[in-house]
Design a protein around this nucleic acid. Structure first.
Lengths: 123, 123
DNA sequence: CGGGATCCAGTAGGATACTG
DNA sequence: CAGTATCCTACTGGATCCCG
């Protein structure tokens, strides 16, 4: 294949990262994943654990996670119906590298906020 | 196979992760960071390396990165003016955990796409 | 209980044109 | 060269009502 661009940074790679970061970087996905990593939950249980989420957004978030194969949805045809959501193996495998990022976040969130404050006041 | 998931889900934590993921999860940030991790670059050089980005979005992305203290901006008052952007120590420290995620992304992007395809055709 | 269907506001992203 | 200034579109997130 023709390689016109020699630079070290792999273009395909960084687009992949971007795609993943964009995928899991929405407002609720990781909060749901982190709760599910603990143990499986039912819909309203989950809704209670993720503070501030609407049913709409929880539904959408779960559906997208299920579509990507990260969450498994189990329906018990009882009355009233019970639906349980669990993190799949695949979902767990993602949550590992994300934990790394979580640690960085925990350690550096304050610094970021400081940097912003300084930048804004300096300006 | 299943690793015991260490210290469990802290609500403050997962909001922190979400914030960071949301911060770096936009369309261009990581693509710029990955290029800058290689070596410092000037504006139009950067623009050439990040395929498809507009000057507008490059400007915005760089400004936000600078505000967060992840990129350092150096101006040489020559004619024409030269501005060099470099990843700061802080920026490098972030790019480490992101590399983990990048590896996961590279290894699993195909799986995700397969999962989506199956989900969509099954439905 | 676990959603689906709408409607609506805010923001991210993009296309140009212009400037010191 | 390295941006700013506009304007516009599309998507994300949220509120509400309804339904099996």
């Amino acid at each position: 294949m023709n390689m016109p661009t020699p630079p070290a940074a792999n273009t395909a790679d960084c687009r992949g990262v971007s795609e993943i970061l964009n995928r899991v970087g929405d407002k609720w996905t990781m909060q749901v994943v982190v709760v599910l990593r603990d143990r499986p939950r039912r819909f309203n249980d989950l809704k209670r654990q993720v503070a501030g989420i609407s049913q709409q957004m929880l539904t959408r978030t779960l559906k997208t996670l299920e579509r990507d194969g990260m969450v498994e949805r189990t329906v018990c045809a009882t009355t009233p119906p019970q639906v349980e959501y669990a993190l799949s193996e695949f979902g767990h495998s993602l949550s590992e590298p994300v934990r790394q990022l979580a640690q960085w976040a925990a350690a550096n969130l304050v610094t970021i906020h400081d940097n912003r404050l300084r930048y804004d006041t300096d300006r």
